[in-house]
């Protein structure tokens, strides 16, 4: 089993965190994982993306150049990465900020109203966790429980009070992706 993700959006949308939680949770589940961020001047321009590979075999390239699974949080990323996707791939995109559909007929595209759902739950900053819930629902590579364990470790005791709202966001995202 090998799952390759490309997760892209604006800096500040928490796309790197989505990737890290995926990788951390899968690592705790006993899988081989890698997480590779884009780095350099494009970061300063506000774009952020990372590649995550989860596999039961040793991981070769940690780069994902033709993503079988793309997680797209904003419109520029849609325009940039939709053409690079593998045939038959899965795209999850944030329809709150993307008013177009991917220009590809050979992939499955799933629209998730990440920001809308997060706002309804009362914390707009959990839009990335809504998306993580949708990823979990659609790919099954990790469970919400293991994602929550990873989030708990990432947050530490200071932010522990934020765990329930993040769980709610993941669950709502999973529901929306059904």
């Amino acid at each position: 089993m090998e799952a390759q993700f490309l997760i892209a959006g604006f800096g500040g949308q928490g796309v790197l965190l989505i990737g890290q939680l995926l990788a951390k949770a899968a690592m705790h589940d006993g899988m081989n994982v890698s997480w590779m961020p884009s780095y350099g001047p494009e970061m300063r321009g506000g774009e952020a993306n990372c590649a995550v590979v989860i596999s039961d075999e040793p991981i070769g390239s940690p780069l994902v150049t033709e993503p079988p699974i793309a997680v797209i949080m904003n419109k520029p990323s849609m325009l940039k990465f939709a053409p690079t996707m593998e045939q038959g791939g899965l795209m999850l995109y944030n329809s709150s900020l993307i008013d177009i559909e991917p220009d590809r007929k050979d992939i499955t595209a799933v629209a998730i109203d990440c920001n809308g759902i997060a706002e309804k739950l009362g914390n707009a900053r959990t839009a990335n966790m809504v998306m993580l819930g949708a990823i979990i629902q659609r790919t099954g590579v990790i469970s919400i429980d293991s994602a929550m364990e990873a989030l708990k470790a990432t947050f530490g005791p200071k932010k522990e009070h934020l765990l329930p709202i993040n769980r709610a966001a993941m669950e709502a995202g999973a529901e929306a992706a059904k």
Binding site: M27, V33, S34, W35, M36, Y39, L63
Partner: peptide, 10 residues
């Protein structure tokens, strides 16, 4: 290289 330095792995 940049990849070994920037990548996260277990």
């Amino acid at each position: 290289d940049g990849l070994i330095g920037q990548m996260m792995e277990p």
